[in-house]
Design a binder for these strands. Structure first.
Lengths: 334, 334
DNA sequence: TTGTAAGCGTTATCAC
DNA sequence: GTGATAACGCTTACAA
């Protein structure tokens, strides 16, 4: 910067001002300076800038895993709205582990993020404590936690599963099985399961057909394994509700091998609505969620949080993102 | 930090040393300091540290899109090896656009990354210029560019497609069609197409059955659309080679609707080997690549680049990542 | 419109 | 083993 200033015959301060549209610099000087900047290929050092302005330009963002198109899409949408306002995501994946989440947050805090975005799959006590005292907006996304730390963007996984289960019961299914992970640290999976159980009980039906297998995220392979042994365990089930679309694909594949007809012998529904769900055969009934919507809404929220003057209207704590039930060939529909 | 120092009755310098395992601090003082740090929940500011040490701890990482499990997995693997050595990824997606890539690089340069990792889908002149003069290791991944900037990790997409095509020809297919995007900015897709064409020509076969559709990344839907009109355009084809697995799934779906048998009426192969490829029906023959391997190898390379003393053995410019042909039910195999 | 001085929170360096 | 001092590259606050 010194060099640029010298070359332009001005002080560093003027260069600094020219570089941000901030200051009042005469158009002539600014033009001259910018030309020199281009020529010298000067790139300002944002760490140094942050140190002065106390604004890092970072948004610490955690997702359970990138290895899931939904989270990846959501991040991509978030990123798109953030880069417009000059914010950079620093990304981490929790691998569905609360202790990993805690470690990541500790390390990201060193970067002085202006906002922290993270999923709710349970938090350690220390995580909550860190988050509360750090004095930065915290956004939990993809689920509505029982006791939110600050802001939330997402939908109730329990309500969604409840709605789907109720709709299945209305369609005449009574002996519904639920497929989810064996390890329960994954709270959103547990929420879906709870929704299923509640709906069954409300209808006076038994929710004992529980298949717990593997750890999150469930894969197609997991579903295939479950499908291969399914009739052995719950031969009387008339429908299977999967905690995500992935194992549902595996079940479809396994049942096809066994000559079981879907939905005539048994119905299958998933959760998530991956692109493939429309093209599977039979195509998959599922709970449709809106990953890009979550990312976008999170971006909007951040924009509001950081761009506000003190007497703007208050910002709502929760942004609801819609889900909806999508019916396809894997269930018998009215 | 000042506060911690005062509470511990030492100077800031001693706190700084205690915090990194760097200096020579007596075990007693260090223990005392660390206890106070914990209690006061002090988190050092890495921007300030970077300013002093000239080490940002950042790795600028670009991928074409996160909306593709392969890139997401690769990033996740890279991230896992980087966090061990205390490096943070700053992530961007180019959306297969070289001008977007240029903008992203310019903005990331402000963070003073210690390494730059990016895909090769062509670069603008200015990108190359920026990258060359920035004096930071540059790693191009996922493809071997004709003129690498610095280091490369990946495989030749052209060679892979050539090998697959040759193998198809050996299996007796002669009227092979190739499905890829209409927009050709995407160099790796073009490389695959070039491999296909070269193999066909080597065998004295015609490579005129070219379907160009949509823009990268090709989706299942794209494949479905192509499949719906396929017989109309190339009714005599005996095999379709898709630039990625995604459109291949769409083709399978469309052909099933039309009552076309795969592979008896027509064979289909993909590129990528997504998890689903094993479970599709028929399961999909494809070129198997190793996204996590690319991520891991990139991580290793970075570790070597940053951790070297001047007289270590030189680091190879290129790290080859294997691909292999995987044969399943969607082709007639010997 | 421009410049000067001080300081952001850390660490390198050298002295004790 | 510990401390004082001067950077690091920028911006804020004020002065001209």
């Amino acid at each position: 910067m010194e060099d640029v200033a010298r070359a332009a015959g001005v002080s560093r301060m003027t260069v600094s001002r020219a570089l941000r549209s901030d200051g009042s610099v005469s158009d002539k000087t600014r033009a001259r300076i910018l030309k020199i900047v281009k020529k010298m290929n000067y790139v300002p050092d944002q760490s140094a800038g942050s140190l002065s302005t106390k604004r890092s330009g970072f948004v610490a963002t955690l997702v359970p895993s990138l290895n899931n198109l939904h989270f990846a899409e959501s991040i991509q949408a978030l990123n798109e709205s953030l880069e417009i306002i000059g914010l950079q995501i620093i990304l981490g994946h929790t691998d569905y582990s609360t202790s990993r989440e805690e470690r990541l947050i500790e390390s990201m805090l060193k970067r002085r993020p202006e906002v922290i975005v993270l999923p709710f799959d349970g938090h350690t006590e220390r995580t909550v404590q860190l988050l509360k005292q750090v004095n930065v907006p915290v956004i939990e996304h993809w689920e509505i936690p029982p006791t939110p730390i600050d802001y939330t963007v997402g939908f109730s996984n329990k309500a969604a599963a409840l709605e789907m289960t109720t709709a299945l019961i209305e369609r005449g299914y009574k002996r519904i099985a639920f497929v989810s992970e064996a390890e329960d640290a994954w709270t959103r999976g547990a929420a879906r399961r709870a929704g299923f159980i509640e709906a069954m009980e409300q209808a006076g039906l038994s929710a004992h057909r529980m298949i717990r297998y593997g750890k999150p995220p469930m894969s197609i392979e997991d579903g295939y394994q479950i499908g291969s042994a399914f009739k052995h365990h719950f031969g009387d089930a008339d429908c299977i509700f999967c905690v995500s679309d992935a194992p549902a694909f595996g079940l479809l594949s396994a049942f096809k091998e066994q000559g079981l007809a879907v939905p005539d012998d048994i119905a299958i529904v998933g959760f998530g609505n991956f692109e493939l769900s429309r093209f599977a055969s039979p195509s998959l009934s599922t709970v449709e969620v809106d990953p890009r919507g979550i990312g976008r809404a999170t971006g909007e929220l951040i924009k509001n949080l950081l761009g506000r003057s003190s007497d703007d209207p208050p910002i709502p704590r929760h942004t609801a993102i819609d889900f909806k039930l999508t019916w396809r060939e894997s269930t018998k529909n009215p």
